[in-house]
């Protein structure tokens, strides 16, 4: 896709880089953290395994949802906030789990 005149300008290039970083590595890391955090908040289900298995099975879908959202949301700041919000909430839950286990030990 040829960049528009606005995108060729300094702020336009920075915006493209920002979106590329968000939709690329940041979305992937966020998807991995959401998957890992899922072990703590997805219901365990009848066999007590859903919280482990479902996030792993659905990882490609979690990533795809984040990738397309971060690629297409016109409001780049909002896309960053939503993605980082998911990352912080799930990362925080994982950190609290480790802190809790450490305290119990």
């Amino acid at each position: 896709m040829p960049p528009s005149a606005a995108e060729k300008s300094g702020p336009g290039i920075a915006r493209r880089w920002s979106r590329g970083i968000l939709a690329g590595p940041v979305a992937f890391i966020a998807a991995a953290v959401v998957m890992a955090g899922g072990a703590l908040w997805v219901p365990k289900g009848a066999a007590s395994i859903d919280n482990i298995v479902l996030p792993i099975v659905l990882f490609p879908a979690i990533w795809a949802a984040l990738f397309f959202y971060t690629s297409l949301d016109r409001n780049l700041l909002r896309a960053w906030l939503v993605t980082l919000g998911l990352l912080v909430i799930n990362g925080g839950m994982i950190a609290m789990e480790f802190v809790g286990k450490g305290a119990a030990a």
């Binding site: 991995a32 998957m35 890992a36 955090g37 072990a39 703590l40 007590s48 395994i49 919280n51 482990i52 298995v53 996030p55 792993i56 099975v57 990882f59 490609p60 994982i94 789990e97 286990k101």
Partner: peptide, 30 residues
């Protein structure tokens, strides 16, 4: 992508979060 990521990333990450890194215990559970 499920098969590739499940063993290379999913299982180790889940074992870390839910079983303190013990993958054998995770496999026994599931």
């Amino acid at each position: 992508s499920f098969f590739s990521f499940a063993s290379s990333m999913g299982i180790p990450a889940m074992a870390m979060v839910a079983f303190g890194g013990d993958q054998v215990k995770l496999i026994e559970t599931i």
